[in-house]
């Protein structure tokens, strides 16, 4: 792929809930280059989760479009029309949610192999071998036969990441994946995401953890009120923001952390 061609290109995304009553995304244009690790920060209610959900094809949009590696896969001409979502293209994207969303009735190994088996018809033996080596890598080999309810939050979240990786995504979306965790479990999950970053996995991360943001981001976007307020390298956006709203937000978040 040519370095200049974007991996993801969002154009003028508009999204509202409740038949237009609540405007959540008010024209988002973001281009993401291959290999970029985009961290999205911003006040809660600012539309960060909505943005990721739209990228995952989980939400209808009012208007706008998204392309992935040059292929359009989410588009809508107007709110009245159904959003067109190309499920084949969408399969290149993996997502991890705040609340793990493992399948409670399946054990860890089954959670991991379900999608490859059903989506790609991968043979059981090969899917299980891949799953076990991923679990090994994430320090979870001993838990392969356990059920989600028997795991700590940190372990569940690592399993959720492994489950998404089973489909060899070309882009990973993380929506506040450590927000529901006890503080002492946060680092084990962040560590796993750092590992992925070391392997140049493109990712888009929503987080309130400024330390994590600083360490993982190649670029930071401050999103508030449904628009991109500031967009730049982490040193700029986190260190010396240009916009007043960004500065206020960063000060508030760091203040709470101390």
């Amino acid at each position: 792929m040519v370095a200049s061609s974007p991996l993801v290109k969002m154009q003028s995304l508009h999204k509202s809930y409740g038949d237009g009553a609540v405007q959540v995304l008010k024209g988002i244009d973001i281009e993401m280059k291959p290999g970029e690790r985009l961290v999205v920060i911003g006040p809660s209610g600012g539309g960060k989760s909505t943005l990721l959900r739209v990228m995952m094809g989980l939400e209808q949009i009012d208007s706008g479009s998204i392309t992935f590696a040059g292929q359009p896969y989410v588009s809508s001409a107007s709110r009245e029309k159904k959003t067109l979502i190309d499920t084949e293209v969408r399969r290149s994207i993996g997502m991890v949610f705040q609340h793990y969303t493992l399948f409670p009735h399946l054990n860890i190994l089954q959670n991991l192999v379900l999608a490859p088996r059903k989506v790609r018809n991968e043979p059981k033996a090969s899917a299980e071998a891949r799953a076990l080596s991923l679990l090994e890598r994430f320090g979870l080999a001993a838990k392969a036969r356990a059920y989600p309810a028997q795991l700590s939050g940190g372990q569940k979240q690592r399993v959720a990441i492994a489950r998404a990786l089973m489909l060899d995504p070309k882009l990973m979306l993380f929506d506040e994946v450590t927000s529901a965790l006890d503080p002492e479990l946060v680092s084990e999950v962040e560590h796993v995401i750092m590992q992925l970053a070391d392997q140049d996995m493109p990712m888009m991360i929503v987080t309130h953890d400024m330390w994590f943001a600083k360490n993982i981001a190649s670029r930071v976007i401050f999103c508030a009120g449904g628009v991109v307020v500031e967009d730049g390298p982490p040193e700029q956006v986190l260190g010396s923001p240009r916009e007043e709203r960004t500065r206020e937000f960063i000060e508030r978040v760091f203040h709470i952390k101390q």
Binding site: M56, L58, R90, G94, F97, T101, L102, L114, A115, V119
Partner: peptide, 8 residues
Amino acid sequence: DACIALGL
């Protein structure tokens, strides 16, 4: 949501 994100 998890099902859709996994493309099931």
